[in-house]
């Protein structure tokens, strides 16, 4: 069995150790005897639907402003339709921080400039400049019940209902009505420090502000993405003594 992961813009969007998410998915797949292939999708990569049809999981992270600018043009002109198709056809994806914002409807800067997003997620992000502080710190949240509704999640989840991480974002994200969040904040800011939501759960993708990287101390999320991507109902438990201990210890960290 093979797991094909498309890692979008590893050269430009690689801040905060988010690369770790891809390494962790590959590691956990290999431990189950699954061959993990990582396809790096860069500015020069020409995608077509036959390549994308083999992709099980798309990952994209955040980057410095300069990196995001380079990516923005390329994604809008050359990759947008493939990403949309991937998400809408119920395939698995993980989008962190800058990428999460980019999949929304728009991003409004502090100076009022509006950058159009890919419009895959029904949400928008606004940066209030110096009027509101940057959202930085350790996070703890409860995974949204929409995951619990999925028998596959219940099957792979040996961790519990929580998810831990670290957030560092200036923009604040607001979900439009009827949109399901990824999680509900116990400690931290989450989407906007107002409504208690964190990230988005749309079809089989997750958008989130959580770094850490997200999958490092949340093995249940990692296994869910793998199991969902390959429709695996028989997934071997791994020795997660350290990751589970790290998860538990993380819950006690101060924001």
């Amino acid at each position: 069995m093979e797991l094909n992961i498309a890692y979008f813009y590893p050269e430009q969007l690689n801040l905060y150790g988010d690369t770790g998410n891809v390494d962790i998915l590959a590691y956990r797949a290999k431990k189950r005897g699954i061959i993990a292939n990582i396809l790096k999708v860069g500015l020069e990569t020409r995608l077509d639907s036959s390549i994308m049809s083999h992709v099980h999981i798309v990952f994209m992270g955040g980057g410095p402003d300069s990196g995001q600018k380079l990516v923005y043009k390329d994604i809008l002109e050359k990759k947008q339709s493939f990403l949309k198709e991937h998400v809408e056809s119920n395939k698995v994806g993980l989008f962190v921080c800058g990428a999460y914002q980019l999949l929304g409807k728009y991003y409004k800067s502090a100076d009022g400039t509006v950058l159009e997003g890919l419009g895959i997620y029904n949400l928008y992000t606004e940066h209030f400049g110096n009027h509101k502080p940057r959202c930085i710190g350790n996070t703890l949240a409860t995974i949204d019940s929409s995951f619990q509704d999925d028998p596959l999640f219940r099957l792979v989840n040996h961790v519990g209902d929580d998810v831990v991480g670290f957030e560092n974002h200036g923009g604040r994200t607001y979900l439009f009505e009827g949109v399901t969040p990824f999680a509900h904040i116990k400690t931290g800011y989450g989407n906007n420090a107002e409504d208690g939501t964190e990230g988005v759960h749309y079809k089989n993708t997750i958008g989130t502000y959580f770094h850490g990287p997200l999958l490092a101390a949340n093995p249940h999320i990692a296994d869910y993405l793998i199991a969902k991507a390959l429709n695996l109902f028989d997934i071997k438990e791994l020795d997660d003594s350290f990751t589970l201990a790290a998860h538990t210890a993380h819950k006690k960290l101060k924001q």
């Binding site: 690369t19 770790g20 670290f166």
Partner: peptide, 18 residues
């Protein structure tokens, strides 16, 4: 450690070459 002077965010350890 994750003291303020170290940076509270330790996710950078995943940017170390595995």
């Amino acid at each position: 450690n994750d003291e303020v002077r170290d940076g509270r965010d330790i996710s950078w350890i995943y940017d170390v070459d595995p």
